[in-house]
Amino acid sequence: MKYCMQCGSEYQDGVKECADCPGSALVDAETMREHHIPLPGEGDTRKFVRAATAEDPFTAEDYARLLQLQHIPVFVRPRRTGTVDVLTTGSLEPWWEIMVGEEFLERATQLLTREKAQLDATAEEAARAAEEEERETEGSAPPAGTL
C-alpha cells in the first residue's frame, strides 16, 4: 500500500498521485513512520509545539500556508476571543499560535522568521508610500465642485 504524505489517505500500489492533494507524492508505510505521520487507523501521537504567534488572522493564515508548502504539519490555534479578554482576565497571550510538529520546530522557526522580516519590510514600505501620497495630496487644491 501507498500513502499520501499530506492527508494520510491510503492507495493501491499502482496509483501515482493523491486524488485530494494534487502534486503530493505517495510513499510507503516506512516513510510515513520516519516522518512521524500516522497511518490510517493508528492513533496520532505527534506532539505539537508553538513555532510562532500572529496578531491577526491573515498573518496566521500566511504562516500556516508557508509551512504547509514546505510539508510541515501545522495548525493555528486561537488564544483570545477579543479585546475584552485583556480587560477581564488580564490575558496578554498572542491572538494566534502557530503550532508545528516538534521535530519540525527548528526548520519552521527559521522559515517563519524570514517571512516575518519580509512582512515587516513590506509594511514599512507601504507606510512610507502612504505618507508620501498624503503629502502630495495635501498640497493640491480639491477638485472643483467638491466643496
Rank of each mutant, 00 (worst) to 15 (best):
K2R: 15
K2I: 03
Y3S: 01
Q6A: 13
G8Q: 06
S9K: 11
E10I: 03
Q12W: 04
D13C: 04
D13H: 07
D13Q: 12
D13K: 09
G14E: 15
V15N: 09
V15P: 09
K16L: 10
K16R: 11
C18E: 08
A19Q: 12
A19E: 15
C21F: 07
C21L: 08
P22H: 03
G23T: 08
G23Y: 06
S24Q: 04
L26G: 05
D28T: 03
E30S: 08
T31G: 01
H36P: 00
H36A: 06
I37M: 13
P38L: 14
P38F: 14
L39K: 14
P40N: 14
G41A: 11
G41N: 11
E42P: 02
D44A: 04
D44H: 04
T45S: 15
T45I: 10
T45H: 15
T45V: 12
R46E: 13
R50S: 10
R50H: 00
R50M: 10
A51R: 01
A51S: 12
A52I: 01
A52L: 03
T53A: 15
E55A: 08
D56A: 03
A60H: 02
A60M: 03
A60C: 03
E61D: 14
D62L: 13
A64S: 15
A64G: 10
R65E: 11
L66Y: 02
H71C: 05
I72T: 10
P73F: 04
P73H: 05
R77K: 11
P78E: 13
R79Y: 03
R80C: 02
T81Q: 09
G82D: 06
V84A: 10
T88C: 05
T88A: 09
T88S: 07
T89C: 05
G90D: 02
S91L: 12
L92P: 00
P94W: 03
P94T: 03
E97W: 07
M99Q: 14
M99F: 04
V100P: 06
V100T: 14
E102N: 15
E103F: 02
E103M: 05
E103S: 09
F104P: 00
L105K: 06
R107Y: 06
R107S: 13
Q110F: 03
L111Q: 11
L112A: 07
T113I: 02
R114Y: 00
R114W: 00
E115M: 06
K116N: 00
L119G: 08
D120Q: 07
A121K: 12
T122G: 07
A123F: 08
E125W: 02
A126K: 14
A127T: 07
A127E: 10
R128F: 04
A129M: 02
A130R: 12
E131A: 12
E132N: 10
E133W: 06
E134G: 01
R135G: 03
E136Q: 13
T137D: 09
E138N: 14
S140T: 14
A141W: 13
P142T: 06
P142W: 08
P143K: 10
A144I: 12
G145N: 10
T146I: 05
T146L: 11
L147C: 09
